[in-house]
């Protein structure tokens, strides 16, 4: 079965994309499988300048998932262009650049720096990282701010712009509609949920940054619900993310209204999870009576 799908700027040979922050720039996973098998790769967030990220403990496990508080560690957009993009040119897969920043200006500067890099097929505006003090989550939880940064990004961007939304909001539909109104080409739902754990030996927060982003299978029902709610209200494609570990999970997201998916924390447990899901997906679609990928998209409300 053909499981390819075309989205703005992205000709995905299959709908499986490792999620930003969970796959680096592909180098480490290229030791395990051919990255050309992937529909696309959402590369690690780029900021204008190098960021060390957060101090102290950055990882905590929890039932059916994990918390991270990496804090957008990256070497800055120039170093990424010099050191990482040439490597990615070796592969036949669609590269999505995740763009982050501490201010609206920084997002725009990163987009400008990447605008003429042919290997980048689309931008993913990360207005939803819970682990940075400025920008990130603040922009993604207020509809007017999400609108403003998306509109400005669209004005200067030479590539399609997808906006990655935060689930840490009262009404995700309101934010999604604001991004659509600002001419976003697509939406990515969802980033991590804000959470924390306590170290019983000290009685203090376990993570160095106190709070972290919750990911893994425990957030899948929330992500599905948000995709389902948003998909019925917008006319732009949705890339679903949240706890995906199997082709069945992918089908749930397609049924909820996603056109493609990103796989995040599952890569940590099984570096081969993406090629496994890609191999399984046609069989699972067939099992549930679908003749194409498109038939499955939005089935839950159509």
């Amino acid at each position: 079965m053909d499981i390819s799908i075309n989205l703005p700027g992205l000709h995905l040979k299959n709908p499986i994309i490792p999620a930003s922050g969970c796959f680096g720039f592909g180098r480490e996973y290229a030791e395990y499988f051919d990255l050309s098998l992937l529909g696309g790769i959402a590369i690690k967030s780029a900021t204008l300048n190098e960021r060390y990220g957060n101090e102290g403990i950055r990882i905590a496990e929890c039932p059916s998932g994990m918390l991270n508080s990496i804090g957008l560690q990256n070497k800055g957009v120039k170093a990424i262009i010099e050191n990482e993009l040439p490597f990615l040119k070796n592969y036949d897969t669609e590269i999505i650049a995740n763009v982050a920043g501490a201010s609206e200006e920084e997002y725009l500067a990163v987009i400008e720096a990447l605008n003429d890099e042919d290997v980048i097929k689309a931008f993913e505006l990360n207005i939803s990282c819970p682990n940075v003090k400025h920008g990130g989550l603040a922009l993604g939880t207020t509809a007017s701010l999400a609108y403003a940064v998306t509109e400005k990004a669209k004005k200067i961007s030479k590539k399609p712009v997808y906006v990655k939304l935060s689930p840490n909001v009262t009404d995700i539909v309101e934010i999604a509609l604001a991004c659509e109104k600002a001419q976003a080409d697509g939406l990515v739902l969802i980033n991590t949920l804000l959470g924390m754990r306590i170290n019983l030996r000290t009685g203090k927060p376990l993570l160095g940054n106190i709070t972290g982003g919750l990911s893994g299978p425990c957030i899948k029902p929330i992500a599905l619900r948000m995709v389902y709610q948003v998909a019925q209200r917008v006319n732009i494609p949705i890339i679903g993310v949240g706890g995906i570990e199997s082709a069945e999970d992918v089908l749930e997201f397609l049924n909820a209204g996603a056109s493609a998916v990103e796989v995040g924390a599952a890569n940590f447990r099984d570096p081969l999870i993406c090629p496994k899901i890609i191999a399984d997906l046609p069989k699972v679609l067939e099992k549930y009576g679908y003749k194409s990928l498109n038939e499955a998209i939005g089935r839950s409300f159509k």
Partner: peptide
């Protein structure tokens, strides 16, 4: 160090070098 991926991708286990750079304990 606490790790998530163990292969160098997630930046969960970094420590700070005396040169100010970040080093992944796993990789």
């Amino acid at each position: 160090q606490r790790m998530a991926c163990g292969v160098g991708a997630c930046m969960g286990c970094v420590c700070k070098g005396k040169d100010g750079k970040a080093y992944r304990v796993c990789k």
